[in-house]
Each structure stands twice: as C-alpha cells, then as structure tokens.
C-alpha cells in the first residue's frame, strides 16, 4: 500500500468540473501530512490539455478513444486497474453523476470500504476521518474506514477550487486494460433546449420551490420577478412537475447560478439545490419551516407565509 491519494477527476463537455479541483486541493493537503503524493487521474481522449490544469503532485492521463465520453463500464475498468497497480491509500470520487456510478462499484470489486456524501476529510495519525452528510444533510456521521485503503465520494463545494488549480507535468498512458467488447455505448450528449432565457446570466432571480403549492401560483412569482426586473428560477420538484421549463432549474442536475439577488419562495434548501446557488451575493429565503436548512445559507429569512409576503411586496413595488 502506498501513501498516495488518487483523485478521479471529471470532464463534462470538454471542461474540467470544479469538483475535480476541489478534491485535488484537499488530496494535496492530506498527502502532504501522510508523506504521499496527490495523484490526479484523468480519463479521456485528446484531453491532455485539460489534464495539465491540476495542482496535484502527479497527474496520470489515460488516453483512449473509448474514454472520450463518460462510460461507467470503461472508466470503472481503467480506475480499477490503476488502483490495483498503484495501491493508493485513498481514492476520491465526486458525489456526482459520474463519480456515483464508479465509487460503489469499485468498493465491491476491490473490496475497499467506501464512505459517501463526504464534506470533511482529515488525517488523525494513521487514521483517515471522513464526515458523511447522511439523511439528506440532516445528520453528520463521523466515520473511520477499516483497513489500509479506502474510497470516498465528495460533495461538490466542500473544499476550495483554487487550491487544486495549477499546472503540472502530465504522465500520459494508454488504457491499462483492453476496452473492447464493452456492453455500454455512449450515443450522444443532448444539450439543454435553447431559446429560453439563460438564468446563469441574470443579476436577479426569484426562485420557486415546492412551497409554491400549485402550478397556478407560479404566476405570482412571475409577477414579483417582473416587478423586481428579475427572472424566475426553480428547484427540481417544480421543473419535474413541468410547472417551469428545465432551463430554469438550479442545483446539482440543473444550473449553477451566482446572481446579485436570489429571492427564494418556498424552497427548503436540499443539498442538491444549495450546490447551485450558495455563492449568490444576496440570498433572501421565505419559508414557513423555521428549521429549513436554507436558513443556514440565506443572509436574510422569514417564516411568514410566502403568498402574504409576495403580495405585500407587489403592492409596495407598484
């Protein structure tokens, strides 16, 4: 077993995801404490340039046409082979659409313990301590993996992006396992429908969540947005229900926004939503549940009824 820490990085549509840098930064800190190296691992095809953007101690870039797009079968095999050959003490994945497909699979295949939903990692002597945000963030579980080698999936936004950005020499290698005969085939990437407004470019957003209650009530949010010269955004339940187009969804599977004003109507603040808006300059949350996690993130809040507040605001603005 080596003292190295593997970070399985990700690229989406040719761009390195922030979570990759966040993990590399943390891996560097942990590796420095344990006398190992933080090793960024990137899989792709013709992506050597992106592979050279990490502040890791070493970067392995596996280049193969079969790795051009994320394919859990191909990616899993490659990561499994690399981990077997180099025996990292810890392998980090993002708690993302890509990372979640690989981490638990590798845990069973390589018989290494896994801790999921991690937002804090530290070394206590030889022990690794990871805190998992379970029960949708309602509980923090402090865990120690057994054995010499472990796997974690890391929540987006837990660590600094800047600490992982840099430029290191890249060791480019061919796939360490044959990648023919795959049962999984990537067909195409479907981009979000164009034509709607781009919520990531808006200075002011009025965001609606489950608390808005019904499709008819979305109109009130639209009126308020118009009066504030803002656009309407939404949490996942609203776009899933079809009350607003998918292009308005903020969060993990939607868009990340950073407006100057994020006014929230009836959004409790699930981790998936917070991931997409927590960096907004001014967050005001209206939610009747005083224990809603959103009040830990918002700058201002109220538990008054959202309809009463929105109507009163409309009157004052007119």
């Amino acid at each position: 077993m080596s003292n190295d820490i593997f970070v399985v990085t990700e690229c989406l549509d040719g761009k390195v995801s922030d979570i990759s840098y966040e993990m590399v930064g943390k891996a560097k800190e942990l590796a420095a404490a344990s006398g190992g190296q933080a090793v960024a691992v990137m899989l792709g095809s013709d992506m050597a340039e992106q592979a050279g953007t990490f502040a890791s101690d070493a970067t392995i870039y596996v280049d193969d046409p079969a790795l051009a797009h994320f394919n859990p079968e191909a990616y899993g095999k490659v990561v499994e082979a690399l981990a077997a050959a180099r025996s990292p003490r810890l392998t980090m994945f993002g708690s993302t659409s890509m990372g979640m497909d690989m981490a638990a699979w590798l845990s069973v295949k390589a018989e290494r313990p896994l801790i999921a939903y991690v937002n804090s990692l530290s070394a206590e002597g030889d022990e690794l301590v990871a805190t998992s945000q379970v029960y949708a963030g309602k509980m923090a579980a402090e865990c120690v993996p057994e054995g010499e080698s472990a796997i974690v999936t890391v929540l987006a936004g837990a660590f600094s992006v800047e600490a992982g950005q840099g430029g290191m020499a890249v060791e480019q290698i061919a796939a360490p396992v044959p990648l023919d005969g795959l049962k999984t085939r990537f067909v195409e990437m479907i981009m979000p429908a164009a034509g709607d407004i781009d919520i990531t470019a808006q200075e002011k957003l009025v965001a609606v969540g489950r608390g808005i209650g019904s499709e008819d009530n979305v109109e009130l949010a639209e009126e308020l947005a118009e009066a504030l010269d803002a656009a309407v955004a939404a949490s996942r339940p609203i776009t899933d229900a079809g009350w607003l187009p998918k292009t308005r969804q903020v969060g993990k599977s939607g868009l990340a926004v950073k407006p100057k004003l994020y006014l929230m109507l009836g959004i409790s603040g699930a981790p998936e939503h917070l991931e997409g808006m927590k960096d907004s300059s001014l967050i005001i949350a209206i939610n009747t549940d005083e224990n809603a996690p959103i009040f830990d993130v918002a700058h201002y809040g109220t538990t008054e009824d959202l309809f009463d507040v929105a109507e009163a605001m409309l009157e004052l603005l007119e």
């Binding site: 801790i115 509980m139 865990c143 120690v144 830990d296 009824d305």
Partner: peptide, 26 residues
C-alpha cells in the same frame, strides 16, 4: 466503516430573520 459519531450538522451561520408581519417583512 466504523461510525464514530453521529449528530445533526453544526450550522456555520444563520440567516438574519426579519421581524414583524408579512407587510413589515415585505
């Protein structure tokens, strides 16, 4: 995996709660 401790997460901050009724809040 050894679960050493479980507790509700410590919140790092809290919103400044606006006092008064809906009109005052608005």
């Amino acid at each position: 995996v050894m679960l050493r401790k479980m507790s509700p997460p410590v919140s790092t901050g809290h919103a400044n709660m606006l006092p008064g009724d809906a009109e005052a809040v608005a």
